[in-house]
Amino acid sequence: MNGAVETANKNIKKIIQKMVVTYKDWHEMLPFALHGYQVEIPSMRVLMEAKLIDAEWVKSRYDQLNLIEEKRLTAMCHGQLHQQRMKKAFDKKVKPRVFREGDLVLKKVLSFAPDSRGKWTPNYEGPYVVKRAFSSGALILTTMDGEDFTRPVNSDAVKKYFA
Protein backbone atom coordinates (compact mmCIF):
# COMPACT_ATOMS: atom_id res chain seq x y z
CA MET A 1 0.00 0.00 0.00
CA ASN A 2 2.96 2.30 -0.73
CA GLY A 3 3.87 2.90 2.90
CA ALA A 4 0.34 3.77 4.07
CA VAL A 5 0.51 1.40 7.05
CA GLU A 6 3.92 2.76 8.04
CA THR A 7 2.59 6.33 7.83
CA ALA A 8 -0.44 5.41 9.91
CA ASN A 9 1.75 3.71 12.50
CA LYS A 10 3.97 6.80 12.65
CA ASN A 11 0.92 9.02 13.23
CA ILE A 12 -0.48 6.70 15.89
CA LYS A 13 2.92 6.69 17.58
CA LYS A 14 2.89 10.51 17.67
CA ILE A 15 -0.60 10.49 19.19
CA ILE A 16 0.45 7.95 21.84
CA GLN A 17 3.58 9.96 22.69
CA LYS A 18 1.39 12.97 23.46
CA MET A 19 -0.93 10.91 25.67
CA VAL A 20 1.37 8.74 27.79
CA VAL A 21 3.12 9.79 31.01
CA THR A 22 5.75 7.05 30.99
CA TYR A 23 6.78 4.70 28.23
CA LYS A 24 5.43 1.75 30.21
CA ASP A 25 1.75 2.64 29.83
CA TRP A 26 1.65 3.02 26.03
CA HIS A 27 -0.41 -0.15 25.64
CA GLU A 28 -3.19 1.35 27.76
CA MET A 29 -3.47 4.38 25.46
CA LEU A 30 -3.32 2.43 22.19
CA PRO A 31 -7.11 1.90 21.85
CA PHE A 32 -7.75 5.61 22.45
CA ALA A 33 -5.10 6.61 19.93
CA LEU A 34 -6.56 4.22 17.34
CA HIS A 35 -10.04 5.57 17.96
CA GLY A 36 -8.82 9.15 17.67
CA TYR A 37 -7.00 8.37 14.46
CA GLN A 38 -10.05 6.58 13.05
CA VAL A 39 -12.30 9.58 13.80
CA GLU A 40 -9.73 11.89 12.20
CA ILE A 41 -9.67 10.00 8.87
CA PRO A 42 -12.98 8.16 8.34
CA SER A 43 -12.56 7.61 4.60
CA MET A 44 -9.57 5.26 4.80
CA ARG A 45 -11.29 1.97 5.76
CA VAL A 46 -8.59 -0.23 4.22
CA LEU A 47 -5.95 1.61 6.20
CA MET A 48 -7.98 1.26 9.39
CA GLU A 49 -8.36 -2.48 8.87
CA ALA A 50 -4.62 -2.79 8.39
CA LYS A 51 -4.06 -0.75 11.54
CA LEU A 52 -6.52 -2.87 13.52
CA ILE A 53 -4.73 -6.01 12.37
CA ASP A 54 -1.48 -4.32 13.40
CA ALA A 55 -3.02 -3.39 16.77
CA GLU A 56 -4.23 -6.94 17.30
CA TRP A 57 -0.72 -8.20 16.55
CA VAL A 58 0.73 -5.67 19.03
CA LYS A 59 -1.76 -6.76 21.69
CA SER A 60 -1.04 -10.47 21.13
CA ARG A 61 2.70 -9.77 21.23
CA TYR A 62 2.22 -7.77 24.44
CA ASP A 63 0.27 -10.67 25.96
CA GLN A 64 3.06 -13.07 24.97
CA LEU A 65 5.66 -10.81 26.58
CA ASN A 66 3.54 -10.59 29.73
CA LEU A 67 3.33 -14.38 29.88
CA ILE A 68 7.10 -14.68 29.42
CA GLU A 69 7.65 -12.09 32.16
CA GLU A 70 5.32 -13.97 34.52
CA LYS A 71 7.20 -17.21 33.87
CA ARG A 72 10.53 -15.45 34.47
CA LEU A 73 9.29 -13.98 37.74
CA THR A 74 7.94 -17.35 38.84
CA ALA A 75 11.25 -19.02 38.04
CA MET A 76 13.10 -16.27 39.87
CA CYS A 77 10.87 -16.76 42.92
CA HIS A 78 11.54 -20.50 42.83
CA GLY A 79 15.27 -19.80 42.55
CA GLN A 80 15.15 -17.44 45.52
CA LEU A 81 13.23 -20.00 47.55
CA HIS A 82 15.85 -22.60 46.68
CA GLN A 83 18.64 -20.22 47.71
CA GLN A 84 16.90 -19.50 51.01
CA ARG A 85 16.50 -23.22 51.71
CA MET A 86 20.16 -23.85 50.90
CA LYS A 87 21.26 -20.97 53.15
CA LYS A 88 19.10 -22.25 56.01
CA ALA A 89 20.54 -25.77 55.66
CA PHE A 90 24.09 -24.40 55.55
CA ASP A 91 23.56 -22.08 58.51
CA LYS A 92 22.34 -25.00 60.63
CA LYS A 93 25.75 -26.64 60.38
CA VAL A 94 27.87 -23.51 60.84
CA LYS A 95 29.26 -23.09 64.32
CA PRO A 96 30.23 -19.51 65.09
CA ARG A 97 33.79 -19.26 66.34
CA VAL A 98 34.41 -16.53 68.87
CA PHE A 99 37.95 -15.65 69.90
CA ARG A 100 38.69 -13.56 72.97
CA GLU A 101 41.84 -11.88 74.19
CA GLY A 102 44.07 -14.42 75.90
CA ASP A 103 42.79 -17.47 73.98
CA LEU A 104 45.39 -19.94 72.74
CA VAL A 105 45.16 -20.69 69.02
CA LEU A 106 46.97 -22.65 66.35
CA LYS A 107 47.69 -20.83 63.06
CA LYS A 108 47.43 -22.56 59.69
CA VAL A 109 50.76 -22.98 57.91
CA LEU A 110 50.46 -21.18 54.58
CA SER A 111 53.89 -22.01 53.25
CA PHE A 112 54.17 -22.48 49.52
CA ALA A 113 57.79 -23.59 49.66
CA PRO A 114 58.28 -27.34 49.28
CA ASP A 115 59.09 -29.13 52.51
CA SER A 116 61.32 -32.20 52.68
CA ARG A 117 58.87 -33.91 55.03
CA GLY A 118 56.24 -34.12 52.27
CA LYS A 119 52.82 -35.15 53.52
CA TRP A 120 54.16 -35.30 57.09
CA THR A 121 54.57 -31.50 57.15
CA PRO A 122 52.47 -30.00 60.00
CA ASN A 123 49.36 -28.08 58.93
CA TYR A 124 49.28 -25.77 61.97
CA GLU A 125 51.93 -23.97 63.98
CA GLY A 126 51.78 -22.46 67.42
CA PRO A 127 50.27 -22.12 69.96
CA TYR A 128 49.86 -18.35 69.85
CA VAL A 129 47.99 -15.99 72.14
CA VAL A 130 45.18 -13.74 70.87
CA LYS A 131 46.27 -10.21 71.79
CA ARG A 132 43.25 -8.48 70.22
CA ALA A 133 40.13 -9.75 68.43
CA PHE A 134 38.18 -7.49 66.08
CA SER A 135 34.49 -7.84 65.22
CA SER A 136 35.37 -8.26 61.53
CA GLY A 137 37.14 -11.56 62.30
CA ALA A 138 40.71 -10.27 62.25
CA LEU A 139 43.03 -11.28 65.09
CA ILE A 140 46.30 -9.86 66.32
CA LEU A 141 48.44 -12.70 67.63
CA THR A 142 51.52 -12.83 69.82
CA THR A 143 53.90 -15.64 70.47
CA MET A 144 54.08 -17.21 73.92
CA ASP A 145 57.15 -15.01 74.53
CA GLY A 146 55.15 -11.82 73.87
CA GLU A 147 56.40 -10.97 70.36
CA ASP A 148 53.65 -9.45 68.21
CA PHE A 149 52.90 -10.51 64.65
CA THR A 150 53.39 -7.71 62.15
CA ARG A 151 50.06 -8.35 60.41
CA PRO A 152 46.61 -9.31 61.62
CA VAL A 153 45.44 -12.85 60.88
CA ASN A 154 42.00 -13.83 59.60
CA SER A 155 40.03 -15.96 62.07
CA ASP A 156 39.44 -18.52 59.29
CA ALA A 157 43.15 -19.35 59.39
CA VAL A 158 43.24 -20.25 63.10
CA LYS A 159 41.65 -22.80 65.39
CA LYS A 160 41.43 -22.95 69.16
CA TYR A 161 44.20 -24.75 70.99
CA PHE A 162 43.17 -26.79 73.98
CA ALA A 163 46.08 -27.52 76.35
Rank of each mutant, 00 (worst) to 15 (best):
P127M: 07
S155E: 07
M19D: 12
G126P: 06
C77F: 08
K51N: 14
D148E: 12
Y128V: 06
G146H: 04
M44N: 09
G146N: 04
R61W: 02
P42G: 04
I12A: 06
E69M: 13
A138G: 03
T150F: 01
T121E: 08
D103S: 03
A157D: 14
H27M: 13
R61D: 11
K119Y: 03
P127R: 05
G79R: 05
V158P: 02
D91F: 00
K108D: 00
K18G: 15
V58Q: 10
A55T: 14
F162C: 08
D115R: 04
R117A: 10
M76A: 15
R72E: 13
V39D: 02
L67V: 05
V109W: 00
Q84L: 15
D63Q: 10
K159R: 11
Q38E: 11
G102H: 05
V5Y: 05
R117F: 06
D156T: 13
H27F: 12
D91I: 06
A55W: 02
K14M: 09
S43K: 14
I12L: 13
G118L: 02
H78Q: 10
L52V: 12
V46A: 10
L110H: 02
P127G: 03
S155T: 07
R132E: 14
A89R: 07
Q38V: 10
E125A: 08
R61K: 11
A4P: 05
T143D: 06
S111M: 02
T121P: 01
S116K: 06
V21N: 08
L34Q: 01
K71V: 11
Q83R: 12
V105T: 01
K87A: 11
K71I: 09
K59C: 11
Q83Y: 11
L73D: 01
V21M: 03
F112Y: 01
I53G: 02
K160Q: 08
M44W: 01
H78V: 05
A4F: 03
E40K: 15
P127D: 05
N9M: 13
F32V: 09
Q64S: 13
L139H: 03
A157N: 15
L30H: 09
Q38H: 12
R151C: 09
G102R: 01
T143A: 07
F99R: 00
N66L: 09
P127N: 09
K92P: 00
C77Q: 08
K119N: 04
M19H: 08
V105L: 03
R72L: 15
M1N: 11
L104D: 01
R100T: 05
